[in-house]
Design a protein around this nucleic acid. Structure first.
Length: 489
RNA sequence: CGGGGUAUGGCGCAGUCCGGUUAGCGCACCUGCUUUGGGAGCAGGGGGUCGUAGGUUCGAAUCCUACUACCCCGACCA
């Protein structure tokens, strides 16, 4: 393991890149723009998956799996949808290779597909083509399906977790009998995502809807959660779309009502991806490495023995095993790091880099005194605690850490959130980084101009916030509410 | 796709301008001894057809030509 991490103040984006690699989360693969998620990084994803999956099930959803390949013709059925994704689709044109003279392989020109296949950038089209067959009557509704899958979007510029050509995600696709029910579904999921972000990731989020130009291709309304990273840039952490009847009409999905009338169904789709891992990293970590919230840390407590002689190690191991057992009984994940190939100092640094929330160090002195050294990753504070009821103390500490991480992120966001009314101040605050609440005249033209001049986009329009009449910060035209602007990932 | 850059052990680099011993350094790796409460020290050791293909030359990592890959900056995006 390399020693130094680039500091955040020196080069934030380099810090992020270094951290992902040094914390052993992921690395670039042989395929441009596609990453290898390493075991430690994947373990975080697995924790996210388990928590989210439980929540989806609790809210009545079921998992299914739809194909990776989508017939090209499906894409042309929903006009906005094609336009949104066409530019970044990988296309399968052939189904066979053959040997060439040089001992390599070439695509067999004889094996051209009749209809080319798209590697899914998202699955609305194949799913709605399928739903047509599943839905006949109001009795078949609602249809509440989720799938865990990989998708491919051929990105120009990629970054580990934040934007890769292939990524993992979950995509929910639901069908409903009424507009109201579909809107409620989209809102329910948004709240579910917000709860996950705040109470598990320890990352405060704003909730609202996207402007027309930031909306999902094919949606009537896109709900989103937006988080702030430590460089003051916003990161979209999850989206939930009310699709209206767009896909039902494009794929002819109709049902008979109780009154025996034929109606198109109403739809939603929603997703979060491995991008959340990027968000998690940038929301909390520091110049010593990753800082993980206890609820998502693959290892919550690491125990490091400090010893000179083998007899000492044996005695420490006995104590460590005891502690491990007690903590596991409380559902806490523990790693006892008794590698004799590395010194304690090395281990301290390594587990800090990997963001383990709590580290226990036990040495001969502790054995004598009946104590253990407890270090918390979020504050880097060390304390010596009595062995008695250690399991309860650690359990409480983990809760405290979870809470502290959230509070820290929240106060960071609050200190980087501004209300501005003048264009000069707008530019200044955007440049410095943060959320800027400003009046907007509601036109795509103004939005575009602001983006061109400051690189800031409308991150969201609040749905519950009170209205307040004012003048657009750019055009001076009347506005009825403030919206959140920021530069974003 | 535009503009800039890079390609040399696993990783990071020097050497290239001005061709000439056995291609060197740091980290990592292996062995041994000493170490172990914040990234250990010493000694020894292994590992490279210098991106690919041509060319110039007595001789090429170094000069020439072509190609390829990757990185950074822009347009696009969860």
């Amino acid at each position: 393991m390399a020693k130094e991490l680039t500091s955040r103040s020196e080069n934030y984006s380099q810090w992020y890149n270094d951290l992902v690699v040094k914390a052993d989360l992921a690395e670039n693969s042989a395929v441009r723009g596609s990453m290898v998620i390493k075991p430690y990084g994947y373990a975080i994803w697995e924790k996210m998956q388990r928590i989210l999956d439980d929540k989806f099930k609790e809210t009545g959803h079921e998992n299914a799996y739809f194909p990776l390949f989508i017939p090209k013709s499906f894409f042309s059925k929903e006009a906005d949808h094609v336009e949104g994704f066409a530019k970044e689709c990988a296309v399968v044109t052939h189904y066979r290779l053959k040997n060439d003279e040089k001992g390599g392989v070439v695509v067999d020109p004889e094996a051209k597909l009749e209809e080319e296949l798209i590697v899914r950038p998202t699955s609305e089209t194949i799913i709605w083509d399928t739903y047509r067959k599943w839905v006949q009557s109001y009795r078949d509704l609602p249809l509440l399906i989720n799938q865990w899958a990989n998708v491919v979007r051929w990105e120009m510029r990629t970054r580990l977790f934040l934007r890769t050509s292939e990524f993992l995600w979950q995509e929910g696709h639901t069908a409903h009998a009424s507009r109201k029910e579909a809107v409620e579904e989209a809102e329910t999921i948004l709240k579910l995502y917000a709860d996950f972000a705040e109470n598990y990731m320890g990352m405060p989020v704003l909730q609202g809807v996207k402007s027309a130009s930031e909306r999902f291709a094919g949606a009537i309304e896109t709900y989103c959660i937006e988080a702030m990273m430590q460089d003051g840039k916003a990161l979209q952490a999850g989206t939930s779309h009310f699709l209206g009847q767009n896909f039902a009409k494009a794929f002819d999905v109709k049902y008979l009502t109780k009154e025996n009338k034929l109606e198109y169904v109403w739809a939603t789709s929603w997703g979060v991806s491995t991008r959340l891992i990027g968000a998690l990293i940038m929301a909390h970590s520091d110049d010593n490495g990753l800082v993980l919230p206890p609820k998502l840390a693959p290892i919550q407590v690491v125990i490091v023995p400090i010893y000179r002689k083998d007899e000492q190690l044996e005695a420490i191991t006995e104590k460590a095993d005891e502690i491990t057992k007690a903590l596991r009984a409380k559902g806490i994940s523990v790693k006892y790091d008794k590698r004799d190939t590395h010194k304690p100092g090395f281990k301290f640094a390594e587990w800090e880099m990997k963001g383990v929330p709590v580290r226990l160090a036990i040495g001969p002195r502790d054995l004598e005194n009946g104590t253990v050294e407890v270090a918390r990753r979020d504050t880097l504070e060390k304390d010596t605690l009595r062995m008695e009821n250690l399991d309860e103390k650690i359990e409480n500490l983990l809760e405290k850490i979870q809470d502290n991480i959230f509070q820290k992120a929240l106060s960071f966001r609050e200190s980087h959130t501004y209300k501005v009314d003048s264009w000069d101040e707008f530019k200044e605050k955007i440049e410095a980084g943060g959320f800027v609440w400003a009046h907007w005249d509601g036109t795509a033209k103004t939005e575009q101009k602001i983006k061109e001049e400051t690189k800031a986009t409308i991150r969201l329009i609040p749905t519950d916030g009170e209205k307040e009449s004012g003048k657009c910060v750019y055009s001076g035209n009347p506005s009825e509410r403030r919206v959140a602007f920021a530069k974003s990932y």
